[in-house]
Design a protein around this nucleic acid. Structure first.
Lengths: 191, 191
DNA sequence: GTCTATAAATTGATAGAC
DNA sequence: GTCTATCAATTTATAGAC
């Protein structure tokens, strides 16, 4: 298990950005967390924003992959939605530091990077909307506003990163995910 | 309708902080939005953080007052919860700029101010938990995890400030609030 | 690829005149 | 209570030696 300088840098950036936010994080801070000099950062990345973009991109890719796999696991609408929200909230509970960067620092990206990341967000949302639409089509779900409800379901997991920490110990990530999955099903289940 | 310099300053600060976040906002930016010189800011506030604290405090006070009034309006559990979530989400939809500051910039506060604001947050959460507990007590609601569910209900409104803008026009604040209120009732209603 | 040293710009905040 | 001018510190990023 060797770690490259580049990996140490990414990990240091995740810690710093999650803790202080993009704007309040200095390149010196990132460098020192990675055990490097301030100048060494620029061997691996052109700018602070490009380092940030790498973190944000990998977080969004992971999330999209996660929800796509989850939605492909079954066709039964209720268990499909339950699994999807369980997995989404579980990821945000377990990875609240990366999640904070992914969800809250969108505006720190350059316009070009914003377009690219925005596409990932639309695709994630689309998976949820499709799961809802399928459930409605077969008469399992009762949903008025597909887009609004999809966003509300994602809000449960997203908002975890604002306050939840797995280390705090009052609730396990699995308990949070189970709660959210159960609430999600109640939000749309027919009858 | 005269506006004092102090009011112009607060309003400029809300705009700037909501748009760029606390750390990325410069005192020069706030001053110029308020039509003042950089030095004039310090006649009214000791520091950038103290100006920010004023904004955060007034936002939290407004929110606490709002939920307390809403919860006092009726005793019938379902309509009480519906009204509470309606009002909370409506406020966040209408005031998404102040809401962004209130919800996302907690860590920018000094430790003393964090304690003070943290108290408002606990009181807001408490109102929701009490409304749920009352509904459970009279057999109207079915809730496993009171605290977790209360937080999930608030998450619907809170997460609006991350993406919603009343100017965008795809949904009115009232439509968002109605949707959230209806989802909230389904999340906890018995049977 | 790493370092030390430093450039160039920006920042929060203050001094002092009016 | 507002301004102009400026300080002192900090920041992103680069130059050049090893």
């Amino acid at each position: 298990m060797t770690t490259t300088a580049r990996e140490r840098l990414m990990s240091a950036a995740v810690d710093a950005f999650a803790e202080k936010g993009f704007a309040a994080t200095t390149t010196r801070d990132i460098a020192s967390r990675a055990g490097m000099s301030p100048a060494a950062v620029y061997v691996h990345h052109d700018s602070k924003e490009s380092l940030f973009f790498q973190v944000s991109l990998s977080g969004h890719r992971e999330t999209l992959e996660l929800v796509e796999k989850s939605a492909a696991r079954t066709d039964e609408p209720v268990e499909r939605l339950r699994g999807l929200i369980y997995d989404f909230s579980l990821w945000h509970a377990r990875n609240s530091r990366v999640g904070r960067i992914v969800q809250y620092e969108f505006n720190a990206l350059t316009p070009e990077h914003r377009t690219e990341i925005g596409d990932y967000r639309r695709r994630i949302e689309r998976v949820v909307r499709d799961v809802l639409a399928d459930g409605v089509a077969v008469g399992a779900f009762d949903v008025d506003d597909l887009g609004g409800t999809a966003r509300a379901l994602l809000s449960l997991g997203v908002d975890l990163v604002r306050w939840y920490s797995p280390e705090a110990g009052s609730r396990t990530p699995e308990a949070m995910a189970t709660l959210h999955a159960s609430l999600a099903v109640r939000m749309v289940h027919k009858g």
